[in-house]
Nucleic acid binder design. Sequence first.
DNA 1: CCTCGAGACTAACGAACGGTAGCCTGCCCG
DNA 2: CGGGCAGGCTACCGTTCGTTAGTCTCGAGG
Lengths: 199, 199
Amino acid sequence: MTEPSRAREIREAATELFYERGYHGTSMREIAARLNMRAPSLYNHLESKQQLLVDIIEDDVALITREFEDATATTDDVIEKFRRGFEVHVRHHTRYAHESKIAMTEVAALEEPGQSEVKEMRRHYTELWRTLIEQAVAEGRASTQSTNLAAYAIIDMGIGIARWFRPDGPLSEGTLAGTYCDFALSVIGADSSPPRSRT
Amino acid sequence: MTEPSRAREIREAATELFYERGYHGTSMREIAARLNMRAPSLYNHLESKQQLLVDIIEDDVALITREFEDATATTDDVIEKFRRGFEVHVRHHTRYAHESKIAMTEVAALEEPGQSEVKEMRRHYTELWRTLIEQAVAEGRASTQSTNLAAYAIIDMGIGIARWFRPDGPLSEGTLAGTYCDFALSVIGADSSPPRSRT
DNA sequence: CCTCGAGACTAACGAACGGTAGCCTGCCCG
DNA sequence: CGGGCAGGCTACCGTTCGTTAGTCTCGAGG
């Protein structure tokens, strides 16, 4: 069940093409061709090319934000929050590498008000990270001097993955997440002593 | 002297616009308008829109590679090489944020053979980093498990800068470079003992 | 069996694109 | 002061774009 609706198929084809050639570099005719259709038929299922882009990007940013919030909500230890949050961050950029890359590179192709909305959503996501790192420093569990820059560095480290990761490559998502977690923890100078052995 | 040639002005205007709106999102008429010209006049100074993009991207990748090689050539200490190389990496992405972002996001807009050439140049730059990190580990001065992933993470950390850095912002290039250097050194687990006190 | 609507199609629109042809102006050098 | 050319310009070409209009087909429901 959950047979792929035509609208969903179109969106997936568009996601692949936007990933490969960019928004302005992809035509509606090309999207249609991927599904053995003609361009005008697409408009039985969508409103416009621009709306397609808005949906892809907004859904992606909303998803990673929700994943982050869910992952960090189930523990009180701030380093464990960080670890889980970053694992989600990395895994998102591997599983949704296409959407993530589009959300990163095609923001400029968004018309208003979509562009401002997305920028605000991204600002919020960044702020979640900054706050978390700040809390870790405040509790003496991390030692970075600039929570702002640490947040940027950690987010960008993950985002970069979307540019080179291939799910069929030699590197598994789990290995990648584990190694990158170590990177991120060392960036903030985390004290990863066991979660419940407080002094 | 060195009055800005028209060709140079065009390239700078194009760089700004490609940065703001992307390659396919920018028209020759818009580039011309920035210089109070009409589009056809541009062709007195350039070959094609595509060649403009090729020049911008290839020059940028060639420049950062040369900067890296120059910076690392003047010391033998592998950690000091790493430090200098990364400082150059960060500073490049602040000083040439526009070009760097274009080189990162518009590779797909390059036609062949330009695209393959640029990808090869980037692969080479990545390889320089991987080799340097491998050497640091071999000498016992760094401790990362995966030189490959460490190289990716470090490069991506720097690249991300080009997306958000603004030269007129509150953050100075020097402060940024310093803080990020600490990040990068901790990612590879660097032993930053003094360069010349070998056992 | 007939209808009716979802969803494909063809034809075509106006706009915008990258680029060319050809002209005109004004400055530099003899 | 006069010729030439560098480098602007206008006019316009053919292509491709996103999108609309209107038609046809086919399968499900009464």
